Measured scan of single mutants.
Amino acid sequence: GATAVSEWTEYKTADGKTYYYNNRTDESTWEKPQELK
């Protein structure tokens, strides 16, 4: 099967917290998305 390329990108805020942003859905989350686990 084809490997899905994750749409999630990991970013850090100014105070060093990590969050994740999805370019396709324009969604952001503090929790690590399922695709990255």
Rank of each mutant, 00 (worst) to 15 (best):
E7S: 07
T9K: 11
W30K: 04
A14G: 07
P33A: 02
A2K: 08
N23M: 12
E27P: 01
E7A: 09
W8F: 02
E10I: 09
Y11G: 05
T3Q: 14
E27Q: 10
S6R: 09
K17L: 10
E31Y: 07
K17N: 07
E10N: 01
E27N: 03
N23A: 15
E31N: 07
R24L: 15
Y21D: 01
A14T: 09
K17G: 05
W8K: 00
T9H: 10
E10W: 05
S28N: 06
W8L: 01
K12N: 05
S6E: 10
T9G: 06
Y19D: 01
S28K: 15
E31D: 11
Y11H: 13
Y21H: 09
Y20K: 00
G16Y: 01
Y11N: 05
E35H: 07
W30S: 09
S28F: 15
Y21L: 04
Y20H: 01
L36S: 06
T29K: 06
Y19Q: 03
K37Q: 15
T29G: 03
A2P: 13
L36A: 05
K12S: 06
T13S: 08
Y19R: 04
R24E: 09
E7R: 03
D15I: 02
S6C: 15
K37A: 15
E10V: 10
L36Q: 05
Q34E: 15
S6T: 12
R24K: 12
S6P: 12
T25H: 02
L36R: 04
A2E: 12
Y20F: 06
T9I: 13
A4K: 08
P33C: 04
Q34M: 11
A4N: 11
T9A: 10
T9Y: 09
T18R: 04
T18L: 09
G16R: 00
Y20A: 00
T25A: 03
N23P: 10
T9L: 10
K12V: 13
G1M: 14
L36T: 05
V5A: 14
Y11L: 15
D15F: 05
T13E: 02
T25I: 03
T3G: 12
A2I: 13
V5T: 13
Q34S: 13
W8G: 00
T29H: 05
N22Y: 03
D15W: 06
S28W: 15
T18H: 05
T9S: 12
N23Y: 13
Y19M: 08
Y21W: 05
L36D: 08
R24N: 08
D15P: 00
Y11K: 14
V5Y: 12
Q34P: 14
Q34R: 07
T3K: 05
W30D: 09
R24G: 05
G16N: 04
E31A: 05
A2N: 13
T13D: 11
T18A: 06
R24C: 10
K32F: 06
K12I: 11
A14R: 07
T25Y: 03
Y20V: 00
K37G: 15
A4G: 14
A4Y: 08
K12P: 02
G16S: 01
E27G: 03
Q34K: 10
K32T: 08
T29E: 03
N23K: 14
D15E: 09
G1A: 13
A14D: 09
T9N: 07
K17I: 08
N22E: 01
E35L: 05
E35M: 05
Y21T: 04
T18F: 08
S28L: 15
K17V: 08
K17E: 08
T3P: 14
T9F: 10
T25E: 02
R24Y: 14
T13V: 02
E10H: 03
G1F: 14
S6Y: 10
G1E: 12
E35R: 03
E27F: 04
N23C: 15
Y21M: 04
G16V: 00
K32A: 06
V5S: 13
E27S: 06
T18P: 05
E10S: 05
A2L: 14
S6W: 08
E35S: 12
S28P: 02
K12M: 10
N22V: 01
D15G: 07
W8H: 00
Y20R: 00
A4S: 12
T25S: 04
K37S: 15
G16F: 01
Y11D: 02
E27M: 07
Y19K: 04
E27L: 05
K32W: 04
K12R: 14
T3F: 12
N22S: 03
L36E: 06
T9D: 04
N23V: 12
E10M: 09
N23T: 14
T29A: 08
S6K: 08
V5E: 12
E27A: 05
E10G: 01
N22A: 01
S6L: 09
K12A: 05
A14Q: 11
E7G: 09
P33I: 02
N22H: 02
V5D: 11
Y20P: 01
A2H: 13
A4I: 14
Y20T: 00
D15N: 07
T18K: 06
T29V: 13
A14N: 09
